[in-house]
Amino acid sequence: MDMIAGKIKLTSKTVDQSMNPLDVLERETRLSARDVTVHYGDKQALFGISIDIPDRAVTSFIGPSGCGKSTFLRCINRMNDTIEGARVGGSIKLDGDDVYDPNLDVVELRARVGMVFQKPNPFPKSIYENVAYGPKIHGLARSRTDLDEIVVSSLRKAGLFEEVKDRLNEPGTSLSGGQQQRLCIARAIAVGPQVILMDEPCSALDPIATAIIEELIDELRENYTIVIVTHSMQQAARVSQKTAFFHLGKLIEEGVTEDIFTNPEHKQTQDYIMGRIG
């Protein structure tokens, strides 16, 4: 037990010290959203969200349940397209390309913007096949050895390789919850995305698995733009450099994580951080 506690502490420490918070402001913007609205049928879920998301940093969305965090996250890789009755307005630009440009190919967009879901959702296939799935459909590997290499390096980057190297042919569902989530991260990495979206990736996991994933996120930050939705403020504080606070479908406040937590401008943000809102 002590060891675990130590590990968590250690993790949060590494995270805190790894980057000067003010650096975030100097990072170039990878994603910029302007005036994004979402309707589900007649019900409006998001009201004019505008935010810039910096490259190679972790941006976290916090806010009470049902405030539209996931909805906004799904706008970024157009997963809302798959929901019947969902309509998106406004614009989101990824490296200057309009995500909602009718000429833009969703398939290509999603290859650039990977996603990890709330509940680990490995396919009912082997561990190897799970990771190889993305590269295969996108035709990223020219040969079997190419594919092997991608699978191994993705599993490595997801910090899972050592644990599963002897059972790559076992079904992905045979892993523990935390391992499954890392498998899903490996699966996303294997396509070589620029951005990785994570929707409460730890909410179904125990504290140890959570700590491991948080550590992993921190490592991945060096190469990817990461956006994470979380309902845990501690987690946001631990892993992210930039934080956005949503409430009732509106973006209330955004900024450097440290500022948001220590010195929120809005009363609603403060209330939420103090635990006064849902």
């Binding site: 190919d105 398939v107 290509e108 290859a111 650039r112 996108h138 035709g139 990223l140 390096s153 490595r156 980057k157 990495i189 396509v191 070589g192 995305p193 620029q194 190469n223 990817y224």
Partner: peptide, 20 residues
């Protein structure tokens, strides 16, 4: 691998486009 990961995208995007 870290190096290749350091510049993800550009080569992959070509590949993805080809198959579209």
């Amino acid at each position: 691998t870290l190096l290749s990961a350091a510049s993800p995208g550009s080569r992959n995007r070509e590949q993805v486009r080809k198959g579209l």
